[in-house]
């Protein structure tokens, strides 16, 4: 089985870390919905991309050298809630200039902004454990991942029922089932992502894969970020 294009591209460059764009394409190839995005080399292209995907948008640094985008370059690596061409142009130009100053080969990624209040932020991850092999993790995502460590694990690959059980075991499952009048999230769609991530880490030369956050809403789940590290 040949590797999907994003993995092959990284291998060709001698990289073990995929860019967010490559990571999202890999997820999309596995049937996981991601935000609509474009990768742009210039600020002008970023403005065109924003028109294409629709405002408001998010502008992010896109480079294999930058894995922690929010912390990068004093916090300009991720600009959210941009609702005008000017704002997009400024954010993109800022990223490209900071990259130039740091000697980092970087583009900008422009994607549709997603209202986080529409759903619950979840993390789905995969890791290759030295003893157990491929493992898939499900947990409460976003900033709460670190605080509550509300996660469950399964030896991968797993079927849909096992993925459901991994979700239902979370303390945070009440949030997904609809909390204080909010609509219940599509847990089956979330389970499908857990299955897909388990299969990716089981079938592909992936050392670690993080989809965080993954927004679980009533209308489905959407991957807002993706970090993929290949086995060296």
């Amino acid at each position: 089985m040949s590797d999907p294009a994003p993995i092959a591209a990284a291998r060709e460059d001698g990289r073990t870390t995929l860019t967010e764009a490559e990571g999202k394409r890999l997820l999309a190839s596995a049937g996981v919905e991601t935000t609509d995005f474009r990768v742009c080399e210039t600020a002008d292209a970023a403005v065109e991309a924003a028109d294409a995907v629709g405002y408001p948008v998010v502008v992010k640094v896109s480079s294999p050298a930058v894995t922690h985008k929010t912390d990068w370059a004093g916090g300009i690596g991720v600009a959210v809630g941009l609702d005008s061409p000017e704002a997009v142009r400024d954010a993109a130009a800022g990223v490209l200039a900071a990259a130039g100053e740091r000697g980092v080969d970087a583009d900008v990624l422009v994607e549709t902004a997603v209202d986080l209040d529409r759903g619950t932020e979840v993390i789905v991850g995969g890791v290759r454990d030295p003893s157990f092999g491929p493992v898939v993790l499900t947990g409460l995502g976003g900033v709460f991942t670190e605080i509550f460590e509300d996660t469950t694990h399964r030896i991968a690959p797993i079927d849909h029922a096992e993925a459901r059980s991994a979700i239902e075991e979370l303390h945070a499952v009440e949030l997904l089932h609809g909390h204080r009048g909010s609509d219940p999230a599509d847990v089956d769609a979330l389970a499908a992502v857990v299955v897909a991530v388990g299969e990716l880490v089981a079938d592909r030369p992936i050392a670690e894969l993080d989809v965080n956050p993954l927004l679980a809403t009533a209308d489905g789940v959407i991957a807002l970020d993706a970090l993929v590290v290949l086995e060296s």
């Binding site: 991850g125 890791v127 454990d129 003893s131 993790l137 670190e146 996660t151 694990h153 670690e208 993080d210």
Partner: peptide, 24 residues
């Protein structure tokens, strides 16, 4: 060691044994 938010750091040895035994 579980402090960071990445899957590897969130995947402790004991958690894997407990989850793996239950799964099996």
């Amino acid at each position: 060691e579980f402090a960071a938010s990445h899957t590897g750091a969130l995947t402790g040895d004991h958690e894997l044994y407990t989850a793996g035994f239950a799964q099996y």
